[in-house]
Structures are given as structure tokens and as C-alpha cells.
Design a protein around this nucleic acid. Sequence first.
DNA 1: CGTGGCTGTGGGAGCGCTCCCACGCCATCG
DNA 2: CGATGGCGTGGGAGCGCTCCCACAGCCACG
Lengths: 351, 351
Amino acid sequence: MTQDDKAIGRRVTLEEVARMAGVSRGTGSRVVNGSPKVSPDARRAVEEAIARLGYVPNRAARSLVTRRSDSIGVVFPVPTARFFGDPFFLLFLNGIGTALALRGLQLVLLMPQSGEEEQRLERYVAAGHIDGVVLTALHGDDPLPERLAARGVPVVVNGRPPRGAQASYVDADSRGGAASATAHLLAQGRRKVATISGSLDMPAALDRLLGFRDALEAAGLPIDPSFEEVGDFSQEGAARAMHLLLERQPDLDGVFVASDSMAVMALGVLQSAGRRVPDDVAVVGFDDQPIAGTTRPPLSSVRHPIEAMSREMVRLLLHSIDARDRLPRQVMFPTELVVRESSGGLPVKRS
Amino acid sequence: MTQDDKAIGRRVTLEEVARMAGVSRGTGSRVVNGSPKVSPDARRAVEEAIARLGYVPNRAARSLVTRRSDSIGVVFPVPTARFFGDPFFLLFLNGIGTALALRGLQLVLLMPQSGEEEQRLERYVAAGHIDGVVLTALHGDDPLPERLAARGVPVVVNGRPPRGAQASYVDADSRGGAASATAHLLAQGRRKVATISGSLDMPAALDRLLGFRDALEAAGLPIDPSFEEVGDFSQEGAARAMHLLLERQPDLDGVFVASDSMAVMALGVLQSAGRRVPDDVAVVGFDDQPIAGTTRPPLSSVRHPIEAMSREMVRLLLHSIDARDRLPRQVMFPTELVVRESSGGLPVKRS
DNA sequence: CGTGGCTGTGGGAGCGCTCCCACGCCATCG
DNA sequence: CGATGGCGTGGGAGCGCTCCCACAGCCACG
């Protein structure tokens, strides 16, 4: 009550704060922006005035002179609609949001629905309304990273960008993770191991398929396409893929699934087809999402550190903005296999 | 190429556009903002200059004088983490995003992680950094709607707010939808009908449970708590709930599930428990998400128009902002039952 | 005691835009 | 034919902030 009226009333300006603190606007600004060149006395007075008046700096005025918007765009191309069902995206969004909030930056969500809207987005971003962009869920031929980079917009991509575009990105070692998951199945004595992959125009999906094959090769087993099926990262796609695999290979004894949300469906299909998991068929997923620990049986899965990766993306992006350097940088995060009951392994910890 | 240099180079200002068009800044501004008091000649000249120079208005400068940020916050309290797995949220976000983009407004995503962060958010929003707020996925005791409204921030809530808070909201007729879904099961001759509900501190979940009971009562059947189980809107919760229900009521012959993503799991559990759907057990979901059409068997579900609802939320919000009126308004959208095979009904159209 | 440097401060300029007032021009009317 | 009114226009003011230059005050040194 004592100060709520201020909250409702007109805006408080730095001028008023300064007047109350008995200093100039300039000194007030210095305090707000944490400049070291302020005497302790002045600093204290200003801080007190800020608290008393409930002052919050006016972003627009600041942006106007700094030529920074202090907001970061997260671009999520909607045509990637199948991805929509995957909770992974929300965990990722949350990670980015947290990292940005910590630095007082705004998260602006951009969801272009079409090529046309992507172009509007491009102009919009290039106009300086956004300091940098996080791109995610890119499909094979999306030219967005290059185009934005060409306009001088700092960009970080979530996952290796398609077509080897020259852009900064943060990725998890999908291939290695997939290989260790598959190797784990083979180590359990499984010999007829299949995989359900994501849409292969997404690098992450392709990497997981390649890792799967790596492990087979390393074990001296042949690569047989009839053990591979695309699940598209959607639950319905995963169910379809699992049915197909069972039809083609009724005696398969292991499945590596490229995402947990698909793995959950695969588990269901296997069980309703009368297969016991892990006795008849061992299953390993990817992502290690919360759901993995709660399925029946609990799902073995490959973990990648979403939180740490989002933090790193933000760090890279801010560096690129501050340092004005557009050198592409890549950061790779290791993955780790988390063994649970679905793969028949002893519930050991991380491998 | 011809104008890319401009895109990269310094910003183009209205001043330059006006100079090129041979008019004053004021007239330029009028054209940009669609004022009618401009001669056709001047308008044409300015529009041409805008196109030639690739001019995009500077939001910060505009905001500074209009005292509008032209951005809308979408608040999604993270503690609602279980909701994370539900694709519904993304469809909703997408609907809001589209409606905003159409009006040139920015979507700022706010994901407070704790009560403390909610307070920061409150100050932030009250400081005028955001013109209005869309709230979603509220749990029982969240005071956010009232608190924001008390600070004079235009607010629209997705779904009836908890505790009957005085706020504008847009909701679907969950209760009616749930009732018609349940009635549909009863009409198929099912008599042992159970339900898996969402977290009951969310009004939408509660409404669906009440609708379920409404239908039972209307049919003269008793309300038996052992036919009700909370699934929490999460897939793991749904699986758990379905197991429990089967244990308690092995001969149940129908289930109404409060969301499609839970229904998918329920379907899986039923089938792996050897029940045939719909022969032994009929299932109806809620949301009518894309996945509903692709399960085996296809899932009957209650449809609510997410797209139309998001549009309406944006409309209400903008009205409240423009008209400066804070009168709470409520809009209710009807739901419709979409019958597919999982409920054993003939695949008729909407009921 | 003068000089030099260093620290902290004040306040002008200006970011790009919208708002608004004043004014010129033309058509209309008494 | 002069007064009246509207329409379209020009341009000053000012939104709230940061940046920067100038300067006051102080200490240390020669």
C-alpha cells in the first residue's frame, strides 16, 4: 500500500530518482549500470531512492541510445510441426529463458509459419529489433542461419546446422551417444537390434542413426536397412515405425529409439504385441527426459545436458554480440548412457 | 545485392525516407502509421522511398513517445512442469504467436521459476515493458492474475482462473465436452465407465471431472470415486492411473481421459493388459490433437478450437489495452465430440 | 606552494520517433 | 470578391536515457 500507488501511477524517471538522491542524472545512470566510478555515498543514496520510488529503467529510452534492444529472439520454424509433440523443445526453451533472465534479457519467441514469414522475420531482425538469435529445430534446407549471418545478426544454432552452414552452434555428441546405447544393447547379447530414427533431414536424427550403425560395425555386424525405420520424432510416427519393424523382423530383440517420447510409444507397441521388455526386447531411448524414469519398465536413455547446453548457447551468443565478432564457434557436449530396466542391464549408474 | 548493403549498413531513419520522398518527417510518420490525412501523391512517394531504402521503424524511438512497447507477454509458470509434456501448450503458443504477428506485436515469453521470479516479473510488467499479458496453465492458488490486474496491467487468462478471480478469460466448455464424451460412452451401452483426470487444482481439469459426473448422474448412475483417478496431465501419470483403475475395476468397459496425450498412454496400458479397444474398453480423449487421428485405433476426442481461442484472447487483450477499460470479459467456446473408432461408435461426424 | 594527475560529478547533446500547433493553399459561400 | 473553413503539410518539442566533455576537489610530488 505504502508504495503501490507509485506502481500504478505515472512512470518514475531517472531524473526523479536523481533529484531525490541529491545527485545528477548522470550519476544516477552510473549507479543503475553498475559503473565503478561512483562514490559509496552517492551510490547508497541512489539505491535508496530507487527502492523508495520503485524505479525501473525505461527500456525504450535506453535502447534508443545504446542501439541495443536487450532482447534475444528464439526462432522455432513451425513447419517443424511434428516436433511439437516433443517435450524436449519446452525444456530447451526453458533453459534459454532462464539463462536470459539471469542477464536481464528478454526472450522474444518467433514462430515463422512459412517462407514468406521467414523473410519478414529476417527484415525484422536485421532492423535491429533483436540483438541476436537462437535458431532451433532446423530442417535440411533451411537457409535461415546463413541469411541472418549475412545480414550481420549474431546467431547460434541449437545442434549442428544442416548443410554444414558456417554458424556458431552447440551440439550434443548424438552420434557417440547413439553408438554407446547400441553397444550397450549388443553387450547384453542382443543380436537383432533395430532403430527408430527421427526425420533424417535433421542433423541430430541423422547422427543418431549413424551412431547406431557405428556400433553395429564395430561389433562386426552387418548394416541391414530392414532394421531401420523413420519415426519422425512424433509419437504416431514412432508407433507406426515399431509396428513395421515388428512385422519385418518379428524376432528382433533390441531397439534403439532416437527420442524418449518416441521410445514411450515403442514400448507401448511392443507390449501390446505381447513382447516383454526387456526379456524379449530391450529398449533404449534418447534425451533422458523425466518420463524415462517413470515408464514401465523404466527406460534406459542417452542423456544430454539440455540445461548446460542452453546456457552455453546464450553465452556464445552474448559473446558474439559484445565482442562484435562473428567467428563461428562450435561447442560439443558429451552424452552419457543412463541404464535402467528397459535395456535389461543392471541398473548401474552412468556409463 | 542491390540493397543488401543498406540492410547491413547503418540504420535507415524516417528522416532519410522523408528526404528521399521529398516530404517532411511528419508526413512520413503519417504514412507509416496509416493516417488518412495524407495526399495520395505523398503517400506513394513515401511508400516508394520506404521500399527503396528498406526502412523499418525503430521500435524503441516509437515506444519512447507512445508509451507502448507493442509487445505482449505470455506467462507460463514453470512449476507447472508436468504440463510440459503436453503438446497442447505449443499449439496454444503458436496460436497466440500468429495472432500477435498479424498485428505487428512481439511475443515475449516469460517463464517464472519461482515465487520470487514471479514478483520480479510483476514489477517488470508494471514498469510498462509489456502492454498486456496472457496467462496460462495456472494452478489453484496462483495470485498472479489479481496482482497484475491490481497494478493496472491488462490481463487475459487462458481458461477460467482459479478461485474465481476477477479477470478476463477465454475458456472452452470443458464441462459440457466431458459430459458429452461420457454420455457418448454410456450411449454405447457401457456401464462401468472410469475417468483419468488432470491435476484438480487446474480449473480445466476439475471441469472435465465434473462433466464426467454430470453425465453419469444424468443417466441415473452412481458416482463412484473408485472409477476416478488423477493422471496429472502427464503421460507417466496417465499410465499409473490406468494401471490403478484396471486393478480396482478389472471389468471396466469405458474410460474418459482428460487429455489426448494421457489418452494415448491409457490406450497403450489397456492394450498391453490384453484389453481390446474398443471391444472390451471404449476410450475417449480430450483436445482432439493431431495424434488422436493416428493412434490404433483412432482416438475419439473432444475438440476445442485452440486457434480460435488464442485469437480471441489476443482480441480481448488488445481491446482492453486500447479501450483502457479493465472490465473483465469472459468468452466461452463450445466443444464438440469427434467420434472415432476407440469409442466403438460409428465414425459419424461431430455430435 | 605550485603543478600534475586522478576521481567523481554535472549537465548538454542527441538517439528516432510521435504529437501537436501553426500555416499555406484551395474550394466554397455570403 | 473577400471572408471562412477544411485539408494536407512542416517542423519544433520532447519522450527518458546514455555518452561524453568539462570541471571541481583532492592528494602527492618536486
